[in-house]
């Protein structure tokens, strides 16, 4: 399962309280960093594109988290399974030709 697409725990069901707590931590941590970057960019204008990058990623990810894209929220007490989470095994590519072939197939 360690090689599962999106991470070994991706899509595993969680409870509503865990989702809400996760959303709170996510939004708070990002907001603190956003404020810090905004202040820093005033002193060092050369990092303004880092500030803009963070702001854009935060905005995009927050939308996904609120829409619950890929997040499997179950019940209030039990994380009831709703969707099957994926389990795709990927090979380790030992030579360049094998890797290129795999990429062509994937494309």
């Amino acid at each position: 399962m360690a090689r599962c697409c999106g991470g070994k725990n991706a899509g595993k069901p969680i409870t509503v309280p865990r989702y809400l707590a996760g959303l709170a931590v996510f939004a708070t941590y990002h907001s603190v960093v956003a404020v810090g970057l905004r202040a820093a960019a005033r002193v060092k204008p050369e990092i303004s594109h880092v500030r803009d990058f963070h702001r854009t990623v935060f905005k995009d990810e927050l939308k996904e988290v609120i829409r619950r894209d890929g997040i499997n929220v179950g019940g209030w007490v039990e994380p009831v399974q709703i969707d099957e989470y994926c389990a795709i095994e990927l090979p380790l590519f030992d030579d360049e030709a094998a890797l290129e072939t795999a990429l062509e197939v994937a494309a």
């Binding site: 697409c5 999106g6 991470g7 725990n9 991706a10 899509g11 595993k12 069901p13 969680i14 865990r18 989702y19 707590a21 996760g22 959303l23 931590v25 996510f26 941590y29 990002h30 960093v33 963070h54 990623v57 935060f58 990810e61 996904e64 988290v65 894209d69 890929g70 997040i71 499997n72 989470y85 990429l103 994937a106 494309a107």
Partner: peptide, 19 residues
Amino acid sequence: ELYYLPYLLMNKPVNHDEI
């Protein structure tokens, strides 16, 4: 920490398209 928070806290799949 910021990028992997949704995965760690909410099991949200990371967005790495292999191509």
